[in-house]
Computed example of a mutant assay.
Amino acid sequence: MIYKHLVKIPILGSLLAITNAYVFNGDFASDRKFAPLLMWAKLLPCIIFSIGLTVLTIFAPCIAIDNKFPQCGLGKDSFVSSGGALSTAILPTILGFGIGVYALIFSLSKKFVRLFHEKSRMAQKDGRKISVLTINADIAYPLISIVFSILIGLIQQRFPTMLWLSALAWMSLWYSMLMTLEIIGTIYRLGEHSLLDKVDEDDDHSWS
């Protein structure tokens, strides 16, 4: 299959594999084939929301001046051109935080992983595409989104007068912030399950 050949391409193959696993909700089949077309719609809400925030960020200040629509003042020191600078200033810290969280996955207890795997198998019987690898994909995909945003930010700072590149920098920045919220949501779910697991473990000890 073409998918197996594409994932062998250096760098791009890894990006495709991570994105496909994220869209596929960690399904084991993501190693062999593309996720069904409808499942790729999972990416649309954050993309659309990022585009909306980008439009407001770039054009709303322009409209607000004397109720006219002047040029947005592209330039090295203009607000419109600051998306790349903000990305390179903010996102590396968030990336470091995300990588630290990603490392915590490997410290999860075997009991917790088995319990999550059993629940995911029950979900599959109900027709939902999910597996224990969902945890892995839900953190890895936001991290590569942040890396791409940093790269776009670096390129945009080299060409500050290109409106489309400034818009792309802002869009990627907003998208990365939304992905950061998703990482926090994943941490919350992991923390919730981990705490309940510890409570159940203490209850078992109290009965023994």
Results as ranks from 00 to 15, higher is better:
Ile2Val: 08
Ile2Ser: 06
Tyr3Trp: 08
Leu6Ser: 03
Leu6Pro: 05
Val7Ala: 00
Ile9Cys: 07
Gly13Val: 04
Gly13Gln: 07
Ser14Lys: 13
Leu16His: 04
Ala17Phe: 13
Thr19Gly: 10
Val23Asn: 09
Asn25Lys: 10
Gly26Arg: 13
Gly26Cys: 09
Asp31Ser: 14
Asp31Ile: 06
Ala35Val: 08
Leu43Arg: 05
Pro45Lys: 01
Cys46Leu: 09
Cys46Ser: 13
Ile48Gln: 09
Ile48Val: 15
Phe49Ala: 13
Phe49Gln: 02
Thr54Glu: 05
Phe59Cys: 02
Phe59Gly: 04
Phe59Asn: 04
Ala60Gln: 01
Ala60Ser: 01
Ala60Met: 03
Pro61His: 07
Ile63Phe: 13
Ile63Arg: 10
Ile63Asp: 07
Ile65Arg: 08
Ile65Trp: 06
Asp66Thr: 11
Phe69Val: 09
Cys72Trp: 00
Leu74Arg: 13
Asp77Ala: 15
Phe79Gln: 14
Val80Glu: 15
Ser81Asn: 14
Gly83Asp: 11
Leu91Met: 13
Thr93His: 12
Ile94Val: 12
Ile94Asn: 11
Leu95Asp: 06
Gly98Met: 05
Gly98Ala: 14
Val101Gly: 01
Leu104Trp: 10
Leu108Ile: 03
Ser109Ala: 01
Lys110Glu: 09
Leu115Thr: 11
Glu118Phe: 07
Ser120Ala: 12
Lys129Asp: 06
Lys129Ile: 08
Lys129Met: 08
Ser131Cys: 03
Val132Ser: 08
Ala137Gly: 05
Ala140Gly: 03
Pro142Arg: 06
Val147Pro: 07
Phe148Arg: 02
Ser149Gln: 06
Ile150Asn: 07
Ile150Thr: 05
Leu151Phe: 15
Ile152Thr: 12
Gln156Pro: 03
Gln156Arg: 12
Gln157Ser: 08
Arg158Val: 13
Pro160Tyr: 15
Pro160His: 14
Thr161Cys: 11
Trp164Phe: 05
Ser166Pro: 11
Met171Gln: 11
Met171Glu: 14
Met171Leu: 15
Tyr175Gly: 09
Met177Ala: 06
Ile184Asp: 01
Ile187Asn: 03
Arg189Tyr: 14
Gly191Ala: 01
Glu192Ser: 14
Ser194Leu: 03
Asp197Leu: 03
Glu201Ser: 11
Glu201Arg: 12
Glu201Asp: 10
Asp202Arg: 07
Asp202Phe: 07
His205Leu: 12
Ser206Tyr: 10
